[in-house]
């Protein structure tokens, strides 16, 4: 069958797809290109320069925002992954779980509601309880909305796995904890890893909640970047953005590679 008569082939899809990928990547490339601009006005090109990277790396406010974001994301990732793992084990492995569907909906609730609604609702809660510490506010809120992102990959992994190996372990008189540590956890690790990665990125990326709940000492990276954007585009901002884009691309690639290897190694697939 020649290509011309391939009935599954629709004309014009190749150029459309090429255009689509240009559309996805050109805006990011624009930031990268402008970050090398010597001119103070971001949009006017006068020559190549690396000086904005120097000033970005020496920017104390940026580094402190980065530290805040990393701290909150690390704690929120740990908390949400542990909570998601225990919920997934209970929902998938538990016998006679009452309200199984409802329990799942509760875990996934942050995905069903618009983030801004949850953010203002949490803000009211914290101001009623008089919790003024920005770190505590952000860690609680981030842990909550990161949980479904950690939960879904772990649940998927658990559901795709048969009980045989765990039962074999129990038959060999391994206690419950040993079975979990030596059999279950290694098998679901790729799911736990993807879940934790997703939770970490969602926390690092969050603007809406962090912007409302942050206090003076707990400005996160996206909130700081927002204040820079409000102050006007600058080549230094472009340099910061380029560094962050590179960091996310490297992290994402690493995470996807691990996830892909996990799928390949899955004994049930």
């Amino acid at each position: 069958m020649s290509i011309r008569h391939d009935v599954k082939r629709y004309p014009g899809l190749r150029p459309l797809t090429i255009f689509f990928f240009l559309y996805l990547y050109v805006p990011l490339a624009v930031i990268v290109v402008y970050s090398f601009n010597a001119n103070r006005v971001a949009g006017v090109w006068t020559g190549f320069s690396l000086k904005w990277y120097g000033s970005a790396l020496n920017n104390a406010a940026l580094m402190s925002a980065l530290e805040t974001s990393l701290t909150i994301a690390a704690v929120a990732t740990l908390v949400s992954t542990l909570i998601a793992l225990s919920a997934a084990l209970a929902i998938v492995r538990g016998k006679n779980v009452r309200f199984r569907k409802l329990s799942e909906t509760v875990v996934n609730l942050p995905l069903l509601l618009p983030e801004i609604v949850l953010a203002v609702a949490t803000l009211i809660l914290f101001s009623l309880l008089d919790i003024q510490n920005g770190f505590i506010r952000l860690i609680v809120a981030h842990s909550a909305f990161c949980t479904p992102f950690a939960f879904l990959p772990i649940r998927a992994r658990l559901q795709g796995m048969s009980l045989d190996l765990e039962e074999a372990s129990a038959d060999l008189y391994a206690d419950r904890w040993t079975t979990f540590r030596r059999v279950t956890l290694p098998l679901i690790f790729p799911g736990v890893f993807s879940g934790a990665m997703l939770a970490f990125l969602i926390s690092m990326d969050d603007f809406i909640t962090s912007n409302l709940l942050a206090t003076g000492g707990s400005t996160t990276l996206p909130v700081y970047i927002f204040s820079l954007i409000r102050a006007g585009t600058s080549p230094e901002l472009n340099a910061i953005a380029t560094l962050l884009i590179l960091a996310s691309l490297v992290l994402a690639t690493a995470a996807l590679l691990v996830a892909a290897r996990g799928t390949r190694d899955n004994p049930d697939q």
């Binding site: 909570i83 225990s86 084990l89 209970a90 492995r93 016998k95 509760v106 909550a144």
Partner: peptide, 26 residues
Amino acid sequence: RLWHDLSFWGLLPSRLLMGFALILPI
């Protein structure tokens, strides 16, 4: 007995967190 009484304690942390940080605020 591998999993049977796990469901309550397994679901407790998520119920507490979502109850406090989501359902109560709503």
